[in-house]
Design a protein around this nucleic acid. Structure first.
Lengths: 213, 213
DNA sequence: GCCTGTTTCAAACGTTTGTTTGAATTATCC
DNA sequence: GGATAATTCAAACAAACGTTTGAAACAGGC
């Protein structure tokens, strides 16, 4: 059981980072939860920052590879719908949620990181995300040729905003959440795709399209 | 110049909290930037937490009151479009951005807080947001009677996700941001409303509506 | 059984944090 | 202008943090 401690540290860190954030989580809280010694973090990972990166690497690599594979598979066929592209991007992460409480914690951490992330982590995440986001944008642009590149980028930005916010599980007053999300990812996926697909497909703004009644 | 220091502290805290987050910002950094003594924070506000609340209160109160006033004004007339409701909610905050660098910092802080917020701040924000969100939901529900309450709530949730993400200014690889947002809030407003309005208006899911080609 | 490398452990390190204190300074009023 | 209150200031406080250390415990190979 040499790297059993390693896994327990990753699990504990993942849970606590997702729940309380990176800086608010102390190494003592992590090692206590993992039933490990305080120095174990530095022995196995070197520093707190590298522990955080390890938490991301463990799941993000396979996640984004699956996304890329799905997007690539789409383009071998004929024309592609917006819904299919969205599904290729969202479903892998949603499947992670379905897989268990640890996966759900990770997606929460992932959503948080998009806004929360400190300087150092941002570079790391950028390296991880750049390939899949560029591919995502390219595929989507081919499906929606009527959009100017800049307009497409903004709508992609909004899309990622919805996903980050939802994954992060931002608790809002009177909002659904706790009751619905747990164990009902199919409903959530359909809601997400329905909302995002029509938004992406909306006619370009150009001039003002409509206004108050 | 008794409460001049107070204002300078609020400005400095607002800027630093928005840029680096609450916990990552030390009182020493704040007081240095505000050209005030370290103890000034406790003299004027009592604690770091209360300083944060004061930063929010200063602008959030008038912001949400303006939103409520606009929504109320809408309902005096006849039928209301989704675009009008969205404008009533978004425009006041976007006007804050337009007003100057301090307003932009505040919206960034506001967007961050929706995800970042610690336990204590969450309760505070809930109290501030509950009235306007309930009103928002009620008005929107009347405009979109075909949506089940739960479906409406989710789409509202997605909407707030887009806004929080955009205000927070989450920097993504290859994403637009720096170039566009500054000084071009009209374009951003139209983009937001175009994207969100069609999403809110999308037909209810009920059964699956479409799938991969 | 001994040796070598890996892993764990308790203890301490130096910083930084939010907060408190009490005196010094400045403003306000009569 | 002297008394009174409001504000500023330098200095120190205890607590918590990430990190380091060096010895103890354990592992597997020969």
């Amino acid at each position: 059981m040499e790297d059993d401690t390693r896994q327990r540290l990753l699990d504990a860190a993942e849970a606590l980072f997702a729940e309380h954030g990176f800086v608010e989580t102390s190494l003592r809280a992590i090692t206590t939860r993992a039933r490990a010694n305080l120095a174990a973090v530095h022995y196995h990972f070197g520093s707190k920052d590298e522990l955080l990166r390890a938490v991301f690497t463990r799941r993000l690599k396979v996640l984004n590879e699956e996304r890329l594979a799905r997007l690539a598979a789409l383009e071998t066929g004929g024309p592609v719908t917006v819904e299919a592209v969205l599904t290729a991007f969202i479903e892998p992460s949603l499947r992670l949620r379905r897989a268990g409480v640890q996966g759900e914690r990770f997606t929460r951490l992932l959503g948080r990181a998009q806004i929360d992330a400190s300087e150092a982590l941002r570079d790391f995440l950028r390296d991880q995300y750049t390939p899949v986001l560029e591919r995502f944008q390219r595929t989507l642009g081919r499906t929606l040729p009527q959009l100017q590149p800049e307009e497409l980028r903004w709508r992609l930005y909004f899309t990622l905003g919805v996903l980050s916010f939802t994954y992060a599980g931002a608790r809002l007053p009177q909002m659904p959440f706790a009751a619905r999300v747990a164990g009902d990812e199919e409903w959530l996926l359909r809601q997400l795709i329905q909302f995002l697909a029509v938004g992406l497909r909306a006619p370009p703004v150009g001039e003002k399209t409509e206004e108050a009644a």
